[in-house]
């Protein structure tokens, strides 16, 4: 069952088109990724879904409700973690959870959330004294304190160190395991690849693809690169081999590009001609490559 249905969403700010006919749907119980570079319209789209922004055109249904008309009712059912939001420096962790719990008609027991999110020993700590990872865990806990059916998490691992990111990922998987549908906005390929069941790839205010991460990586023109260094023997013509699309050579370094099982053919040919190579590596296609294939541009996560 689709919990979120977005159809032909449009939004302009003066001359700038932020959303240009965005459509996607999110199924119950999945982690749905919204991926794209900064400025692709990800956050705007999600904020329209949350009811924080009013789209110019298009329709949004969340749990059967209209986020603009039924905003209040909807906000009882969703949990939100927003990008660039903070809490007052001096609020204590338990006070924040207790306060946010009081906003909802049927909240979860925040003491349990404190335990679940590893914040029990930070109960009386002030927000300003928390580490980046602890703040992030508190934000997720605040997004869940209303016992939502859908949780929206926007750029939640930006600014975290690698270990804190890993930990956060495990926690997100736990959220889904508890039956909450998760919409995850991210500009990190690895995060989306690790967590999401399905991904909508945003670029320039449009959805350019919706698929599973594996489907995106395998889909399109799946080209792989094979690299090696010549140790002895002269390189033979590899360009004619089945599946090979390009060969380039810089000194002793050779890069062969191809599709399908071209690597087996290439290594067999090298062996047949007694050519000795070292540092043989085959690059797996990544979501980055998929993005380039979809948009014709490189995806630059460092903005």
């Amino acid at each position: 069952m689709a919990v979120i249905e977005v159809t032909d969403l449009r939004k302009r700010y003066r001359e700038l088109t932020v959303l240009d006919g965005v459509s996607f749907s999110v199924e119950e119980g999945e982690i749905f990724g919204i991926l794209g570079p900064n400025g692709a319209g990800k956050t705007t789209a999600v904020e329209c879904v949350e009811g924080l922004r009013r789209p110019d055109a298009g329709s949004v249904r969340v749990l059967g409700l209209d986020p603009v008309k039924d905003g209040r009712e909807l906000r009882e059912l969703i949990g939100v973690q927003l990008q660039h939001t903070q809490l007052p420096e001096n609020i204590k962790v338990w006070e924040a959870l207790d306060l946010y719990a009081s906003f909802y008609a049927r909240p979860r027991d925040w003491r349990r959330l404190l335990e679940e999110w590893g914040l029990a020993d930070k109960r009386d700590a002030r927000f300003g004294k928390l580490s980046g990872g602890q703040k992030q865990r508190l934000f997720i806990a605040l997004a869940l304190v209303g016992d939502p059916r859908v949780a929206f998490l926007d750029e939640l691992t930006t600014g975290l160190d690698p270990q804190a990111r890993r930990t956060t990922w495990e926690l997100i998987k736990r959220v889904r395991a508890n039956g909450v549908t998760v919409v995850l906005v991210s500009h990190f390929m690895d995060e989306v690849e690790e967590l999401c069941d399905r991904v909508a790839v945003f670029d320039g205010g449009r959805v350019v693809a919706i698929d599973t991460p594996d489907g995106l990586i395998g889909g399109g023109d799946a080209e792989h690169h094979m690299r090696f260094t010549l140790v002895s023997g002269d390189l033979v013509e590899l360009g004619e081999l089945p599946g090979v699309t390009a060969v380039s050579r810089t000194g002793n370094r050779v890069v062969v590009t191809g599709r399908g099982d071209f690597a087996t053919t290439v290594t067999a040919s090298l062996a047949r001609h007694h050519i000795l190579v070292s540092d043989l590596r085959i690059d797996k296609r990544t979501l980055d490559d998929a993005f380039v294939a979809l948009t014709g541009r490189s995806f630059d996560p460092t903005h």
Binding site: E50, L52, E76, P88, Y104
Partner: peptide, 17 residues
């Protein structure tokens, strides 16, 4: 102004309050 700058007012508008 600090509450707005820190997104606290905005965060509230995502709750039933």
């Amino acid at each position: 102004a600090t509450y707005r700058e820190r997104g606290i007012l905005r965060r509230l508008s995502a709750t039933p309050v």
